[in-house]
Design a protein around this nucleic acid. Structure first.
Length: 485
RNA sequence: GGCGGCAUUGCCAAGUGGUAAGGCAACGGUCUGCAAAACCGUUAUUCACCGGUUCGAGUCCGGUUGCCGCCUCCA
């Protein structure tokens, strides 16, 4: 079955047919590195990471480009405030970006270009646009002339007359039309600059993505992605620049992810209602944030809350503990695999998983199939005595294999269960102010009481632990515990 | 003002015109010394409202109401 994707420029789902049958070239707008990333960034990069992983799983050779914007007004402002060079700011936040992305299991892109390393390409591109008559020099600036480009507005579905030009756009006498946007900006004193045919200056906001995507992916490529907020003006302007320069279609499929909301309102810095990734991942196990993102289709808004992230963390705990139990049950069993009663059900779930992912990367729907397999695995473990040993192990081996495929696509369940479960316990304990040593001591004491069949005392201790939020589990291998709240 | 999106059980959330996935919570059960975990079962005759198309609509069309986003930096 072919993959279908919702293409913003078409306004509908379309069959995904890459330019070359077995190759996909995709570009996703990266971060402007002047501050810590928030969970809105997390959503975008997790969403496209899953798309990247899925396309590779489907057998495409994927070239994924995700840039760093390291020249920008906000970077300069931040550097001036702190009295440091812009490089200090950008290097710091690139490093923080990697820390966050790694914690979320977001893979590196194949190519991660920086704007400062592509000034020559940018200048050449601007020159080409000028030569083609779509841009003009005005003082030390260069502007793109939106009126001269017939397709302007085709991505965002706006017409120039509809946009209340001038109302909320900076009045600038250098521009011929209020919607014209800067390709090159003359540098003010104290700002970083590069020499150009138009004098000392720096690139405008949109031009870098046109220059870098084309350099690494060609003048027409398959997928361009980013948050919905980039549709206008950023991506609209990229189309104008690239098509104005090369006169071929820029991108075949435009993919845009929805926002993260807080209390049903867009999370944003200006509203002050944002969470950084670090704030969340220092408090909750990072994979919980990734799992949380998977629960809603990438194009829909998603509402972040403490309840939601807690629930997600609970699910992460569930699937890693299931994995732990599966590993224990399978042991060193290496096959050969035998048929087992539920095999058909397993295959059906895997098939449905892929069908859902084929349908515009519907992770929320596909997640149901993963849940079904985890539940099935636990069920088989519970009824282990009903199966001959080799069939019992074969079935779990088979299910584990399918779970791993799903986990690889989702970017979850890829870690060692014991250490994950331990980390989750540690984080919960920290969150709730629970003293882990005291818990261990009480459990030890209770075990002793149980050995002596002093159930009154053991229950007393259990109730005491319960009040602390600790649930204990007596198993043949000893007493395990987890934090309930 | 222009453009776009959304409204599904207590909560979160899928849903291709054919009779409502999955998760959380809750309740009952199996297991257990008692528990917990795990598993099983129960929990929307109904999908904001009003019309229409159709043998049949959460799903298509028209209208109403409410919420949200973009049009300014923004994932």
């Amino acid at each position: 079955m072919a993959i279908k994707v919702f293409n913003t420029i078409a306004g509908k789902k379309e069959d995904f047919i890459p330019i070359k049958p077995d190759e996909v070239r995709m570009y996703v707008c990266g971060v402007t590195v002047y501050d810590m990333c928030h969970i809105g960034h997390a959503r975008a990069y997790v969403a496209f990471d899953v798309i990247y992983r899925y396309l590779k799983e489907k057998g495409f050779r994927v070239t994924y480009v995700r840039n760093f914007t390291d020249v920008d007004d906000k970077i300069i402002k931040r550097a001036n405030e702190l009295g440091v060079k812009t490089e200090e700011i950008t290097e710091k936040y690139i490093s923080e970006f990697y820390t966050d992305m790694e914690s979320l299991g977001v893979s590196k892109a194949d190519i991660e270009p920086k704007v400062t390393e592509h000034i020559n390409e940018i200048i050449a591109l601007i020159q080409k646009i000028i030569d083609n008559g779509y841009a003009y020099v005005s003082g030390g600036d260069v502007y793109f002339s939106v009126e001269s480009f017939p397709g302007y507005g085709k991505l965002s579905g706006r017409r120039l007359d509809d946009m209340k030009a001038g109302a909320r756009v900076e009045v600038n006498e250098q521009k011929r039309h209020p919607m014209d946007f800067a390709l090159w900006k003359e540098s003010k004193p104290g700002e970083p600059f590069w020499d150009s045919p138009w004098g000392k200056g720096r690139p405008g906001w949109h031009i870098e993505c046109s220059a870098m995507s084309t350099k690494y992916l060609g003048t027409t490529f398959d997928i361009h992605g980013g948050g919905k907020d980039l549709i206008f003006p950023h991506h609209e302007n990229e189309i104008a620049q690239s098509e104005g320069a090369y006169k071929v279609p820029f991108v075949r499929y435009w993919l845009h992810n929805g926002f993260v909301n807080i209390n049903e309102e867009k999370m944003s810095k200006s509203l002050g209602n944002f969470f950084t990734i670090r704030e969340v991942t220092s408090r909750y196990y990072p994979e919980a944030l990734r799992y949380f993102m998977l629960g809603t289709h990438y194009r829909s808004p998603i509402n972040y809350s403490v309840d939601a992230i807690s629930e997600s963390e609970g699910r992460v705990e569930y699937y890693y503990s299931t994995l732990r139990e599966m590993n224990n049950a399978i042991g060193s069993f290496g096959g050969p695999l035998k048929d087992f009663p539920a095999k058909e059900e397993v295959d059906k779930n895997l098939q449905e998983f892929f069908d859902s992912m084929d349908d515009d990367f519907n992770t929320a729907k596909a997640l149901a199939n993963l849940s079904n397999l985890l539940r099935l695995a636990n069920d088989i473990i519970l009824k282990r005595n009903q199966y001959p040993k080799d069939i019992f192990r074969s079935s779990l081996c088979y299910i584990r294999e399918k779970i791993m495929i799903m986990g690889r696509i989702f970017g979850i369940m890829e870690k060692e269960p014991l250490s994950v479960l331990k980390s989750i316990t540690t984080m919960k304990a920290k969150r709730l102010g629970i003293d882990v040593d005291e818990v261990s001591r009480l459990i030890e004491e209770r075990s002793l009481a149980r050995k002596e069949k002093n159930f009154q005392k053991s229950d007393e201790i259990r109730d005491r632990l319960l009040k602390m939020g600790i649930a204990i589990m007596d198993t043949p291998e000893g007493t395990l515990w987890r934090i309930e709240r």
